[in-house]
Simulated assay, not measured.
Amino acid sequence: MKQALLTILFVTFAGYPIDVRTQSIKAAGQDRIHFGDVIDVDVVGSFEFDWRGRVNPEGFLDGFDKVDRQIFVLCRTESEVATEIAAQYSRILRDPKVIVQIVDKTDRPVAYVGGAVKTPQRFRIQRRVTITELIVLAGGITDTASGEINIFRPPDLSCEDDAVRAASSSGNRSKSNEPRNTIIKIADLLSGSPSSNVSILGGDIVTVTQAMPIYVIGGVNNPLSLSARAGITLSRAIAAAGGISKEGDANEVTVFRREAGTSLVLNFSLAEIEAKKTDDIALKPYDVVDVSQKGRPKRRFPPVIENAAAFGSADPKLPLRIID
């Protein structure tokens, strides 16, 4: 039910703040030169000075040696680059007419969406797109989400920043274009907050963070791993695991806890908790709740449990979807 509700809410808000005026490929800086682009330089009436190639890791035309100095092109427009090349060529040509075109954009960086989503994916973004739209396309948020979304933006992979564009337009690389991390609250997205529904750009890594686990094992009907959230108590965790089984002993409940580099062993009686004789403690991330089983020795040491939760990553093997 919770999964369905999250999906419905995200579908509802997915298109909310999207401006239909920015649906073209040239929106959000996409008409500027990016890493991976193939650039064509055409000098009208002269084959000798034509050139085609890519952008090197420093943001210059890679191997363009027909002028005295390198031409910085990253995040600049075609016309800006054409003007600079024409100025360089004017030293050896009379009134050169230069046309610069981006002829291939297919190798531009892709955005990644992973973590606590149903279908982690890569996205090639060719128009304005917001975080909720991508989350919906990734199948929606799962029950293991912690409540936050982390957006990591590497430097220079997108040209959306006004300061970066201004520096690039003058032929410089912006020193202020540093990697950025942004945290978005899922609750703010679901409430329809426009400031939270940010635009996602090529190269962004979006991770719906997963809640740390709490394990309930032993004499319960359905041993499981719960997402550690505020308010999860010992009795609620056991109830979520289907309650005490026929073999379980409600008077012998052990909580194994890792805290400050040490392992703690806490013993409780569920019967006393239900009778209000003992506090119903709040569980912490990575707690292991072990309900003893009748006829078996009580566990003295914490079990080894492999945490197989998969966090989002920039995996090149993920499915690729084009957003145009």
Score class of each variant (00 low, 15 high):
residue 165 R to P: 09
residue 287 D to I: 09
residue 174 S to Q: 02
residue 14 A to D: 03
residue 31 D to M: 01
residue 322 I to D: 10
residue 57 P to M: 12
residue 176 S to D: 11
residue 255 V to C: 12
residue 50 D to A: 12
residue 139 G to P: 04
residue 12 T to H: 08
residue 56 N to T: 12
residue 60 F to L: 07
residue 263 S to N: 13
residue 243 G to S: 09
residue 200 I to Y: 10
residue 189 L to H: 02
residue 307 N to A: 04
residue 90 S to I: 07
residue 88 Q to G: 05
residue 66 K to L: 15
residue 33 I to A: 05
residue 61 L to E: 07
residue 232 I to M: 13
residue 41 V to S: 01
residue 286 Y to K: 08
residue 124 R to Y: 12
residue 51 W to I: 11
residue 283 L to R: 05
residue 97 K to D: 11
residue 131 I to G: 02
residue 78 E to K: 10
residue 188 D to T: 01
residue 167 A to P: 02
residue 203 G to M: 12
residue 4 A to R: 03
residue 255 V to D: 09
residue 273 I to M: 09
residue 286 Y to G: 02
residue 64 F to E: 07
residue 53 G to L: 07
residue 294 K to P: 03
residue 237 A to I: 06
residue 195 S to E: 10
residue 223 P to S: 06
residue 98 V to F: 07
residue 140 G to E: 04
residue 125 I to C: 06
residue 66 K to Y: 14
residue 248 G to A: 03
residue 16 Y to P: 01
residue 106 T to D: 15
residue 53 G to I: 08
residue 265 V to Y: 03
residue 250 A to Y: 08
residue 85 I to Q: 04
residue 2 K to F: 12
residue 270 L to N: 09
residue 51 W to T: 07
residue 18 I to L: 13
residue 135 I to F: 00
residue 128 R to Y: 06
residue 147 G to Y: 05
residue 239 A to N: 13
residue 192 G to Q: 00
residue 158 S to L: 00
residue 253 V to G: 08
residue 253 V to F: 02
residue 233 T to H: 04
residue 301 F to N: 09
residue 177 N to P: 00
residue 53 G to N: 07
residue 259 E to H: 12
residue 322 I to A: 05
residue 269 S to L: 06
residue 73 V to D: 12
residue 147 G to A: 09
residue 182 T to H: 08
residue 296 R to Q: 15
residue 69 R to F: 09
residue 120 P to K: 04
residue 322 I to K: 11
residue 256 F to M: 04
residue 121 Q to G: 01
residue 250 A to F: 05
residue 286 Y to T: 09
residue 180 R to D: 04
residue 55 V to F: 06
residue 202 G to E: 03
residue 129 V to A: 08
residue 1 M to N: 10
